[in-house]
């Protein structure tokens, strides 16, 4: 079951969040267990299934990253098993350098904490920039759907995943 059609929404990467929420509430009411308590078991089961899809779908569609991954998967892109051949070499260089800097900071002196905070700010900003770029690429895909746009989105999501890991690493250090 396609989440977009389940919610009665156009299959687009840029999604109107309030419209999605509105549909979620409507459908939640529609499939609410209370309404099926007196119904035959078959109908009750169907409503339960629909509720499950509704909740899963809402979780996926309301998050721009998960939504993009969902569409990529639908279009036949392998999301879980990515290897370096899918990652641009410049990004690997960049992530490697960032990790090196992080390691140096860890082994550094008292100043390390301030530098780590600075690095944290930088990574968070990078993540925000990636999120903005994801929006822009999503708009482009919605206007002219195609593999090229999806490929770009996928590369961006890879990059974002690395950045997200770096943010988590630094936060662990700062905690």
């Amino acid at each position: 079951m396609d989440y977009f059609s389940f919610f009665g929404l156009e299959r687009k990467l840029t999604l109107d969040a309030s419209r999605l929420q509105q549909r979620f509430y409507q459908l939640s009411k529609e499939y609410h267990p209370d309404r099926f308590a007196q119904k035959p078991a078959e109908e009750r089961l169907k409503a339960e299934e629909a509720s499950a899809i509704l909740n899963d779908g809402y979780r996926v569609l309301r998050d721009p990253v998960q939504r993009a991954e969902y569409v990529l998967r639908q279009e036949g892109f392998d999301i879980g098993e990515q290897r370096s051949k899918d990652v641009p070499p410049e990004l690997l260089e960049e992530v490697f350098e960032l990790n090196m800097a992080l390691e140096e900071l860890r082994h550094g002196d008292e100043d390390a904490r301030a530098s780590l905070k600075e690095a944290h700010g930088k990574f968070v900003a990078m993540r925000a920039a990636a999120d903005e770029e994801l929006c822009a690429l999503g708009r482009r895909y919605d206007e002219t759907p195609g593999r090229d746009a999806l490929q770009q989105i996928r590369a961006l999501l890879n990059r974002r995943r690395y950045i997200r890991n770096l943010v988590a690493e630094v936060e662990k250090e700062l905690a």
Binding site: G80, Q82, L92, V95, F96, R161, N165
Partner: peptide, 13 residues
């Protein structure tokens, strides 16, 4: 050789 796995965040040189 520089390779990586975005899923787990690994980079290997």
């Amino acid at each position: 050789g520089m390779v990586g796995a975005p899923e787990c965040g690994d980079v290997m040189k």
